[in-house]
């Protein structure tokens, strides 16, 4: 809340992009996040996994205020996430998000989807916004679809547009909320490839996903959550080959078992 504290926080640790301290959240009576402590460095790639209802989506949705935490402190990019609208706006500008169901704007063309936020939030001149949009659409390998509408694209293409749309704001941090869960198996690969490329370019990423192959390949750290708590976190090698807690072992045996 106090402004000087923010700057102090930032100067202490320039490397940290996300820090959560004793964060708690309830949906009514349901305690969905319990004493979450998490710190993410710039450039780090994190995969969050866990059974459904364990609070992993809620965790990353708290990082851009799509959900409001009720207890504890969250700092993103050195800014405290509180009720201050200015802080929320500033954080949302720097944090991109990709959703399970894409959430593209169906009444706007692919290009307009990508230009909306740069024009209205970053106040980018139209021509420049178009240039940025085409740049990122090229990067996700669908520049030729720019004038089409979301309803005309396949699921995998839509998700890649959603990634490009988030990148057009040139965010410091990307959040992925189960980006491949709503896709056909053969489309999963094209989206994961895009995400791997993004990771290789050094983007800071927090991904909620069940794609363990992706986790092994790109993650710097895998976090396992259950019942609103972070049960275990480790480097992928150690996490998959040598899980410590019984809950993690059970989970891994279930998802890797077949």
């Amino acid at each position: 809340m106090a402004q000087p504290q923010n700057t102090a926080e930032q100067s202490v640790d320039q490397k940290t992009i996300v820090s959560m301290r004793n964060v708690n959240k309830w949906f009514g009576q349901f305690h969905v996040l319990r004493d979450i402590n998490l710190s993410v460095d710039k450039g780090e790639r994190i995969v969050v996994c866990g059974p459904s209802g364990s609070g992993k989506s809620t965790l990353i949705r708290c990082l851009n205020r799509l959900e409001k935490h009720q207890d504890g402190d969250i700092f993103v990019h050195g800014i405290e996430l509180n009720n201050d609208v200015k802080n929320i706006d500033e954080i949302r500008r720097e944090v991109g998000m990709v959703f399970q169901h894409f959430n593209l704007f169906p009444h706007l063309s692919i290009l307009e989807n990508c230009m909306l936020a740069p024009i209205w939030v970053r106040k980018t001149p139209r021509a420049e916004a178009e240039e940025i949009a085409m740049h990122f659409l090229t990067r996700v390998k669908i520049p030729e679809q720019a004038s089409k509408y979301p309803g005309q694209l396949s699921g995998g293409q839509q998700q890649r547009v959603a990634i490009a749309r988030a990148l057009c704001m040139q965010p410091q941090l990307m959040l992925f909320d189960e980006p491949t869960s709503a896709l056909d198996p053969e489309m999963i690969k094209e989206v994961l490839d895009t995400m791997v490329e993004l990771a290789d370019d050094g983007m800071t990423m927090i991904c909620v996903t069940h794609e363990m192959g992706f986790a092994r390949r790109v993650a710097d750290r895998v976090i396992f959550m259950d019942e609103g708590q972070i049960v275990e976190q480790n480097e992928p090698e150690a996490f998959f080959n040598n899980p410590k807690s019984d809950r993690t072992k059970l989970f891994l045996s279930q998802i890797l078992g077949h």
């Binding site: 851009n64 706006d89 949302r92 500008r93 991109g96 959703f99 959430n103 909306l116 209205w120 988030a166």
Partner: peptide, 12 residues
Amino acid sequence: GQTEAAYALGVR
């Protein structure tokens, strides 16, 4: 999700 997507992009 439409509102959330816009909010996540920083749109007021």
